[in-house]
Design a protein around this nucleic acid. Sequence first.
DNA 1: ATTGGGATTGGGAGCGTCCCCATGCGCGAC
DNA 2: GTCGCGCATGGGGACGCTCCCAATCCCAAT
Lengths: 345, 345
Amino acid sequence: MAADRVTTYDVAKAAGVSQPTVSRVFSRSTSVDPAKVERVRAVARELGYIPNLVARSLNSGHSFRIGIVLAYLKNGFFGEALQDFSKALNKQGYSVTVYFAGNSSDDIDGIIDDLLADQVDGIVLASISLSNALVTRVRKSGIPCVLFNRGQSDPDVSMVTASNFMGGKQATEFLIKAGHMRIAHLAGWRKALNGVDRRDGFLAAMEEAGLEPLACIDCHFRRTVAMVETRKLFHQKVVPDALFVANDHMAFGVLEVLREELGLRVPQDVSVIGYDDAPMADWKTFDLTTVRQPLPQMIDATATMLLSEIADPSRASEKIEIPGELIVRGSARMPAGVTRMTAKP
Amino acid sequence: MAADRVTTYDVAKAAGVSQPTVSRVFSRSTSVDPAKVERVRAVARELGYIPNLVARSLNSGHSFRIGIVLAYLKNGFFGEALQDFSKALNKQGYSVTVYFAGNSSDDIDGIIDDLLADQVDGIVLASISLSNALVTRVRKSGIPCVLFNRGQSDPDVSMVTASNFMGGKQATEFLIKAGHMRIAHLAGWRKALNGVDRRDGFLAAMEEAGLEPLACIDCHFRRTVAMVETRKLFHQKVVPDALFVANDHMAFGVLEVLREELGLRVPQDVSVIGYDDAPMADWKTFDLTTVRQPLPQMIDATATMLLSEIADPSRASEKIEIPGELIVRGSARMPAGVTRMTAKP
DNA sequence: ATTGGGATTGGGAGCGTCCCCATGCGCGAC
DNA sequence: GTCGCGCATGGGGACGCTCCCAATCCCAAT
């Protein structure tokens, strides 16, 4: 069925020009007689010629492909991220190939091999747990690389993160201003920098206000763990009057426990603040006050950064932290003077 | 920084063999002296040689890449699908490149060009609205292609779908057996075959039982639309005692309206059944009875089908429909003798 | 009319790999 | 001891394109 691939030679012959001329028409490297351009284009269209990117890659050294390494996609956040990435990079003529790494480092090692074999022009490492050895390996390969939403101590690697510290601090200050005194934090995962930073922001805000955290518990970003810990917290002598939860996903579980199991009213009895502004956060069922991850800006910064590194591989690494935004809804008591935000842009 | 790429020539020279021999070692096409194999492997490892897939593609005509075309990824369903696809295909030595098509057909036309230029070995068209002309174009290109979760009238194209008709019928029969008489359906989108099939399953079950549908409303798979329509339904003279909603996403919104706005109890006052078994469906907040999309089997079937078409492009197209499974939870009244399912596999 | 210069053009090599083919080598059989 | 036979090996040519460079052409200027 597959009519044999049409090549520049076929087009050249049919258009009465040389093969390099056809090539020039499609790569617009140097000028070609406008009349010929038109003729070549017409013939090409008629024959159904489409430039073979593989051949172009081989001798140009650019594959026009970007590899993006992800751990999971079940979480909607990364799906959205991937989609936006892809669109941003497609616009620049790149296509995006995905590589999934379970969090085992063997996987990741194999994936780096794949990335190298596939000759990608650039790599986005999104939220995977990675060893320094790994980052070193990628760097040594010389392929431009940006870490997305994943902190790393290595100073030589570019990265884009949300300002988790500030976000945690902001959320906590909001609770404090609203008059809460017994504030607990259901934290992320102590091995994930974003969780740690949110926690540190929480602790910093508490200390500045001269308050003692009622609790600060590692919940591994897992909803069920957060639910268990919430039950425990409310069976103690002194119970919290506010909870700062390290992500929305856990916060939804926490709300469920508070309302359905413990019969508490939110925010009258307990205030809850989450993190991420997941799409469900503004459903009336949850109506969750939360810190929004500035996803579009993060994507944008990452894509831009990666593309400039591809354009000039010698440029210094860069680290960008993008501030979050507190989205005020109904799950946390409001400090005087603050009003609810209505529309979600 | 980027040490120049190590090629088979470099390895050959360092190992004291010819370039073709190195090639043979890595493509294990014909036999090579075991001693040399080992030496070449050792040298390659030391030099950090990795076969260049681009060069291999150019020469062999196989890119070992699969293109998957998606409309959206915000919906968790496709994120999961993409991940599973990628894993299944990686296992067979393919990498997966994603292409996003908004639902405009211009987009899609451009994407086909990209797919052709990128020389993908196979295409998965996942849930995008596509014209017959488009499918024709893909077919004419000779690239193997499978439609995933998207029906199409064209008999010559392979596809894998969930059995939406049976699923809709099953859900409806469940409601009927539980004694409901005033059943309404909040449908998907009349231009999407999966929505239409679910609706037809609903109508078939009703007819078989000799019942008149109380309503059957196109909600475009949009949560907010479903919420509006729910309000309307319950402001009529005769109100439903059961709702079959065309996907979980809408069902969550419907539950919200029923409980929070209308003060109804589920399932005592109204039964609700959804479709998809989204991860949130088993949260206690929703506890939604729903029809599970048999995603793993669908992925599996699609990957297998695509790979066999790649292996033998002349093989006939195939259509597979995979039956769904009713997951019984607490949002719908239970017929006598039916018990709740507990574990989610 | 001749020449110089810029714009176009075609020839040819090469990107890294795999495949076809011919060579060479070793070993068993006569 | 010589002749095959077969397997391992290397040479050379593709794959489709881009790039370099030399050749050509046209036109203006001398």
